[in-house]
Simulated assay, not measured.
Amino acid sequence: MNCPICKKPVEAAHRPFCSKRCADLDLARWLGGGYAIPSTDPEDVEAAIEAAEAERAKPH
């Protein structure tokens, strides 16, 4: 099995990655939205805008 990030052989300690570096790169992609599936559905866009505006309006 090869690392999905760099294609090197997988290390058991970091499975399914070869190193902590590749695991961290994968996590950064998840957190940054790199794995998000874009939508062109107008309802999805409107719901996302409304949710963001509601979150912004909350007192912190």
Rank of each mutant, 00 (worst) to 15 (best):
D26W: 05
A54D: 13
P4A: 14
K7C: 07
C22I: 03
Y35S: 06
A28P: 04
D24A: 14
D41S: 13
E50M: 07
P16D: 08
K8M: 09
F17S: 01
F17N: 00
V10D: 07
A54N: 11
Y35G: 05
K8Y: 01
A47T: 09
R21P: 06
I37V: 14
V10F: 03
T40I: 13
D44T: 00
D41R: 13
P16C: 06
V45A: 12
P9C: 10
P16W: 02
H14I: 04
I49H: 02
K58N: 11
D41F: 03
A12T: 09
R56N: 08
A13K: 15
M1K: 11
H60P: 06
D41K: 12
L25C: 08
C22K: 00
R15P: 02
P9E: 14
H14R: 07
A54I: 05
P38E: 08
H60N: 10
A48F: 02
E11R: 11
L25D: 09
D26F: 09
D44C: 01
C3L: 07
A12F: 15
K7P: 01
E11L: 10
P59N: 09
V45K: 12
A54Q: 13
D44V: 03
R56H: 08
H14S: 15
A51T: 06
A48L: 12
P38Q: 08
G34M: 01
A51N: 04
D24P: 02
M1Y: 12
A48S: 15
E11I: 05
D24S: 14
P9N: 14
E55M: 06
F17Q: 00
I5C: 04
I5Q: 07
C3E: 00
A36N: 15
A48T: 15
E53R: 03
R15Y: 10
P59Q: 06
A47E: 05
G33M: 10
C6K: 04
E53I: 05
E43G: 02
P59E: 08
I49E: 05
H14M: 04
D44M: 01
P59M: 07
C3M: 04
P38C: 01
S39G: 03
H14P: 01
P9G: 10
E53Q: 06
A12P: 15
G33F: 06
G32N: 06
W30M: 14
G34W: 00
V45C: 07
D44Y: 00
L27Q: 15
P9F: 08
A54H: 03
V10R: 09
D41M: 05
E11S: 09
I49N: 02
A52D: 06
R15Q: 10
G32E: 08
D26P: 01
K20C: 05
I37A: 11
A47H: 03
A23W: 03
D24Q: 10
K20R: 13
K20S: 14
A47Q: 06
K7F: 10
A47W: 01
I37P: 04
C3G: 04
T40Q: 11
S19L: 03
E43K: 05
G32P: 00
A47V: 05
G34E: 00
F17L: 02
C18W: 02
E50K: 10
P38F: 10
K20T: 15
T40H: 12
N2P: 05
E50P: 01
A52L: 12
L25S: 09
